[in-house]
Computed example of a mutant assay.
Amino acid sequence: MTTPDVGRRRLAVLGSPIAHSKSPRLHRAAYALLGLDWSYETAEVPSGTLAAFLDGMGPEWRGLSLTMPLKQEVLPHLAETDRLAALAGAANTVRVADDGRLLGFNTDIGGIIGALADAGVDRVRHGVLIGGGATAASALVAMAELGAAEVRVHVRDAARAAAIVELAPKLGLVVDVRPIADLASAGEAELVVSTVPGGTDLGVAASDALVSTAPLLDVAYDPWPTRLAADWLARDGRVVHGLGMLLHQALLQVRVFVSGDPLEPLPDEQAVLEVMRRSLD
């Protein structure tokens, strides 16, 4: 990869499929308000082609946002990862350092926590997780950050939960892996997070006990409502829109791209957040 210089200002979200992504709206709104002449694009990058894309990047690149299926595929290409990316085994954000090194971050975890905070959920002891991929690992870390002690994980294929099972002891969590079908008889919980693609038909409806006690954060936002969210809403359950996670993780990405630090607030950050939120209307 060519070593970038201080004039770089190009960013993009990579993944497959990617045409539906609302990330360009969010980022362009933020950079316009911040007075930064940066571009932000979408790039269709299927699994297995990420290395070629990275090799073709020139000195104008500032950073990348990553979606399915690249959050784990990128890891071998990173010179460094932040604590959360290393813990979750997934990076959704890459910043190009001044010397050309690729630095990996995970802002999905903070995005989940931010979306839940907007919905008044700031403490969880017993959670339910649907799915076992890279985003599911981030969701598990988020639940741990919110104080969870036990999480039931529902997956269609038990092998898909192997990374989740391995991660749980590092977080001080007890994980109980169950088949998707067990959602029909699931007991009460304080939170459900679904990380399966939006068009997925789980083939089962969640129990009344689960819907009546636990808000559902469905990280998918296209199409909306997802089948799971529609069923939750039809039974008067609480649903946290997946766009909330997208918004808050994007704000953290903007921090990374501007300063290199996801913990350093932006100038007039509340105004940045609001203009980003309005871009989704």
Rank of each mutant, 00 (worst) to 15 (best):
T200W: 00
K71L: 07
V196P: 00
V13A: 05
G147D: 05
H77I: 00
L33Q: 14
M245N: 04
I180K: 06
G203F: 14
A186I: 04
V177R: 09
I113G: 00
E188C: 05
P169G: 09
L251R: 09
T226Q: 07
R238C: 01
D55H: 08
K170V: 00
G63H: 11
P17L: 10
H27V: 11
E188G: 00
G110L: 12
G48H: 04
V254T: 15
A144M: 02
A229E: 01
A43K: 13
Q249P: 01
V193H: 09
N92I: 12
T49K: 13
A30V: 09
S185V: 15
V124R: 10
L217Q: 05
R62S: 08
L129Y: 09
L216C: 11
S16C: 13
W38R: 12
T213G: 05
R156P: 00
A205E: 13
D99M: 08
A52K: 07
L191Y: 11
L252G: 02
P197Y: 03
V165E: 15
L26Y: 12
S39K: 07
T93K: 05
E274S: 15
G100E: 05
N106Y: 09
V258C: 12
G120Q: 08
M68E: 01
H27I: 06
T67C: 10
T2S: 13
S207E: 07
D236E: 15
T107D: 10
G48S: 08
W61E: 06
T213I: 06
G244Q: 01
V153H: 01
A137Y: 00
D82I: 06
G127E: 04
L146K: 03
L228N: 03
R10L: 11
L191S: 12
I109R: 06
V6N: 09
D268E: 15
R95G: 04
G100D: 11
